[in-house]
Design a protein around this nucleic acid. Structure first.
Lengths: 342, 342
DNA sequence: GTGAAAGCGCTAACAC
DNA sequence: GTGTTAGCGCTTTCAC
């Protein structure tokens, strides 16, 4: 049984050298066996395989990827694991089944604040060695020429860089604002998204479009930063709702900040939607839970499309950069209604 | 400007050697500069840093982790990115902020079926090199002694192995079943979870407990496999609901299979909850969206607790193995009601 | 203060 | 068929 070796063995620390020593062959032979290369005697093969199984040896991703050209691993680079990227991840994961690619989601946010240029840093740290291709979620800086195929979801810039996926930000924002206008609102505030993202700019543009089309005045005092985050949405909404001439409706650039606005309204003793209507953007699961009216982006499909595009690039060599543009759709739930009577 | 080097440079392929050559120093010196080691002349430091910035050099995670002892990266090993693990990931990610640890979620499912023993394989491939510690989500095999600290969430076995986190599976299942009984149901079916997980066994035990406590007969024909998956839940529910003496309520071992059961009911022309009540377990976001009654596990908190435990182990050396046990709570939504009148 | 050299675990040529 | 060797990119003694 030679249980000593087995008992002492420890996962992840069994190296190819251990196997070689135990089997009485060279590491090269073990490598050939493990990778199914030709030129190994059947007897040797069996013997080595037995040891491999007994010791529970697995080749180290790190070591082999350092030496090899490819790893069959696709990286998903995110700032953090929040609802938005989690939804994308589900779509990416579902689409990855059966492609032969493994998935590795990486969040290089170790300190208190997200490092600027995290996506460049993460990409540099992983590309060329650990991952064969990458899906970047909301990258904020312009990427230089990359060594590996990259697809960006909701990127900083709409074009010029890598392949991209986004949804109809302008149309969605317009639909949200038009919905509020149709309900009878005339003082509609907007909580902006992250300044470094193209989607923010586009959603604000859609908001203005709708206002203008309806002949409503655009009051700059009603447009505040929301930063796509719960806390920022809450604090800006607080400011907005404490004004004597407070808006009767708020269009937040994403669901997280809309949810923040809802907390703020509640704190202030305002009822949603009776006193103030709130609508978001994204349709993350938390929006459904909070019965938040919103603009739905097909997040799963966006993730799946990114994965398929990337696999295509990986397989087909240097294909042209592509741009996927999906539609966004109004979902009316319980947080939007007619404005309070005067 | 020496723009040539810059223009030609490619992310991820800039190596320490490139920097050294460009700066006219050795790679050892560059390494010292980049890692902030002492013993470098201020002038050299400046010069090297300038090149590093210009070329956009970042040390390769792979290469450095192969050489170094630690990486400051925590691995989250999952079978796939489905709603359950995505929720845990959110909690883990939130708790990781400010700890100095980066997160790397890995799903080693490349082919059509999840490989047996994937967690052992993934752990072996990453431990000791890429990651300093790991959080394993629903590991199905008993893990041998591991080389790195490990915390398992909802593991195969409740004890004996690594530190674990789970919720009150028995109590939750009992509460779900009691809720149905209180509504007046007497023929209550159960969709089992994955056979290789302890949580499945415990939830079934809770179901039986509640039945027995209420003096209700236990009909083995009403207990089918659900496998924690949508498709399996649907097909088993179809079988159940096509019986002449079909149950009036179904307790599914998790939300995904409960959602599957709902699809099946709808296909069969049955209304939920008027014709059949359905309750799940987990409270994933999709449950709220579908207005599914369920037992809520504090998934974010479970993830956060796992992260904190792991960081504790990483910092404090070989602490004793710990076991976190959180409570589960009944959430009544729109899929459970009194049974149809006879 | 700096560089040469060894080596982390692995794979791929190339000898034998 | 099998072993020897070089080297992937990096960090770390240890000379100089």
């Amino acid at each position: 049984m030679s249980d000593d070796a087995e008992a002492r063995h420890v996962v992840g620390r069994v190296t190819i050298t251990d196997v070689a020593r135990e089997a009485g062959v060279s590491v090269a032979t073990v490598s050939k066996v493990v990778n199914g290369r030709y030129g190994v005697a059947p007897g040797t093969f069996e013997r080595v395989m037995a040891i491999v199984t007994r010791l529970g040896y697995e080749t180290s991703l790190v070591a082999s990827s350092l030496r090899r050209r490819q790893t069959n691993v696709i990286g998903v680079l995110v700032t953090e694991f929040e609802p938005y990227s989690a939804e994308l991840l589900k779509g990416i994961g579902a689409a990855a089944h059966g492609t032969g690619y493994e998935l590795l989601a990486y969040s290089g946010w170790a300190d208190d604040a997200p490092p600027v240029g995290w996506e460049r840093r993460s990409l540099s740290r992983l590309a060329g060695t650990l991952i064969d291709g990458a899906i970047l979620v909301t990258p904020t800086v312009l990427l230089p020429d990359t060594s590996i195929p990259v697809v960006a979801i909701d990127p900083h810039t709409g074009s010029g860089g890598p392949s991209t996926i986004d949804s109809d930000n302008v149309g969605g924002a317009r639909a949200a604002t038009e919905h509020l206008i149709a309900l009878g609102h005339t003082r509609i505030a907007h909580l902006r998204g992250r300044a470094d993202l193209e989607s923010s700019r586009l959603r604000e543009a859609g908001y203005r479009d709708a206002l203008q089309a309806a002949g409503l005045p655009h009051d700059p005092a009603l447009v505040l930063a929301g930063d796509y985050r719960h806390a920022d949405g809450a604090s800006s909404a607080r400011l907005l709702l404490q004004r004597p001439d407070r808006p009767t409706a708020i269009f937040a650039a994403n669901d997280l900040s809309a949810l923040g606005a809802m907390s703020a309204a509640r704190e202030l003793g305002l009822r949603v939607p009776q006193d103030v209507s709130i609508i978001g953007f994204d349709d993350i699961p938390e929006a459904a839970r909070g019965r938040l009216s919103t603009i739905a982006q097909p997040l799963h499909e966006m993730g799946a499309m990114a994965l398929r595009m990337l696999v295509g690039q990986l397989a087909g060599g240097a294909a042209e950069q592509q741009h996927g543009h999906l539609s966004a759709e109004l979902i009316v739930r319980d947080t939007t209604a007619a404005p309070p009577a005067l």
